[in-house]
Nucleic acid binder design. Structure first.
Lengths: 148, 148
DNA sequence: TATTTCTTGACAAAATTGCTCAGGAATAAT
DNA sequence: ATTATTCCTGAGCAATTTTGTCAAGAAATA
């Protein structure tokens, strides 16, 4: 599981683009200034987001980026996964040893596996639109199965 | 938010201790061999877990570690926090700029904040006993608020 | 006393992160 | 056509973090 500034910058950049009027191009320099993030670093991230199909770009004067999808179609989990890579379980660090529950190894595997699923579930249900509308707070709930 | 091998080793070590008969001392070398983790690295981790009150230690021949609390009293969130430190929101990377919703910064803040809460909620409800009993799988649920 | 085991702190290799930099390519305005 | 603007790409690198190792010691037991 991984979550670095790169992933957060990606969400930040997409939010910034989503906040502008639709189909209006947003320049890297604008995002860079608004969010105080290195513009050359942002270039990498946005280039990546473009390749993954989240945004479209226009070069030249008055160029910039715009969303390639509707804000409600872009989920946080997709952004993070595109930028940071697949969130792996990583529970069984020792891959040559069989994962057959010996000495509690796989009990732990289940834990990290489930945690990853939990995170993905959470981020998979929040769209860029939700972010823009500020509808994120207060979503945490205790899983049903632990309440009884 | 942080989750490295150190935290996972800590859970692994505690699981190993919990799996042995209660009040029977477990040596670092046993954990090291069972889980194939560097024993000198484990020393650091267990020493830390001892200082945080999760285990008690006995030195000398036939010494080792045992749990200082009942397995059902030890929650995953506590272990991880003790080893890795507090899971911070980290949403607002730029602390000198006011966090007043300008340009979408705080919309993102909410997201990472809420994600952290989600993770803590999940790990806070799983005990060492749950791990030992393999009662972890299938706990993920879609938060109620996104279902309507 | 010798052996076993935990305890502590310093140090270091390796990996990752978070960038910078140097060029280049496309587009538009002039 | 030229120039200015903007995105695009890859290499490289410094700082930090991770993941340990090592050395010396302290406590307990046989």
């Amino acid at each position: 599981m991984k979550l670095t500034t790169k992933g957060r910058y990606a969400v930040l950049a997409l939010t910034e683009i989503a906040l502008s009027e639709s189909d209006k191009l947003v320049k890297i320099s604008q995002i860079s200034e608004a969010q105080n993030i290195s513009s050359t670093y942002l270039e990498q991230i946005l280039s990546n987001l473009k390749n993954k199909g989240f945004v479209e770009s226009v070069r030249g004067p008055n160029g910039g980026y715009k969303l390639a999808l509707k804000p409600e179609e872009i989920k946080m989990a997709e952004i993070i996964e595109a930028i940071e890579g697949k969130m792996e379980p990583k529970g069984c660090h020792n891959k040559d040893v069989s994962c057959t529950g010996i000495s509690g190894r796989c009990l732990n595997h289940d834990l990290w596996d489930e945690l990853g699923r939990q995170i993905e579930l959470f981020l998979g249900h929040i769209s860029l639109q939700d972010i823009v509308e500020g509808k994120v707070l207060g979503r945490s709930r205790v899983p049903l199965s632990v309440l009884d």
